Amino acid sequence: MDLTELTRRLHAIRDANDWRRFHSPKNLTMAASVEMAELVEIFQWLGEDESRHLPADQLAHAGQEIGDVVLYLLLLCAELGLDMDEVVRAKLADTERRYKP
């Protein structure tokens, strides 16, 4: 996944629709949270086994919501001047140190 290319494409959409004024870190964080809540709704009343074996339509819906969350987080990283790849790799390395694989 080329995060630089994805971010460039997101910025093209943002700029073409004059959304930059709405893309403050605060707003992007809230938008990501809303999309995460939509993902939570898919699993809300399912049992453990059901949550691992979603019907095709629900699996597709989950994928859409995951995509929304990731795209908002990419926009948030860009606004904060953070490199998503570096942030994720650093966090994974920290997790590996704390919880030896």
Rank of each mutant, 00 (worst) to 15 (best):
V34M: 12
A78M: 00
L39V: 06
L71E: 15
E86R: 14
F43I: 00
E96T: 09
M84F: 12
R52G: 05
A60K: 15
V70M: 13
H23E: 15
L10A: 05
T7H: 00
A31K: 03
D2Q: 11
W19P: 00
D83F: 04
L82D: 13
R21G: 15
L46S: 06
A56F: 01
L54R: 02
D68M: 05
D18C: 03
R20W: 02
R21Q: 13
D68E: 12
R98C: 07
R14K: 14
L74S: 06
I13G: 00
M36C: 07
E5I: 13
V69H: 05
I66W: 07
R8N: 11
R8D: 13
R21I: 14
L10P: 02
R20N: 07
I13T: 06
K100S: 08
I42V: 15
A90R: 15
I42Q: 05
L6Y: 01
R98Y: 00
L75T: 05
W45E: 15
Q58R: 11
V34P: 00
Q58E: 11
Q58A: 14
D57R: 15
R52M: 04
T95R: 09
D94I: 04
G81P: 14
K26P: 01
E96K: 11
Q64L: 12
T29C: 08
S24F: 01
H61W: 14
Y72F: 15
L59P: 00
F43G: 07
E65I: 07
V34F: 03
R97P: 04
I13M: 04
A32Y: 01
C77T: 10
V34N: 08
D68R: 03
A78F: 00
E35G: 07
L71G: 03
D83S: 11
L75H: 03
N27P: 03
R52P: 00
E50G: 00
V88M: 09
Q44I: 05
V40Y: 09
R98E: 12
R52V: 02
K26A: 13
L3R: 11
H11Y: 12
G81C: 14
E96F: 01
A32K: 05
A12P: 01
W45L: 13
A56Y: 09
A31C: 06
R14V: 09
P55H: 07
L10D: 03
D94Y: 10
L80A: 08
I42S: 02
V69M: 10
L71F: 04
L92S: 10
P55Q: 05
L54A: 02
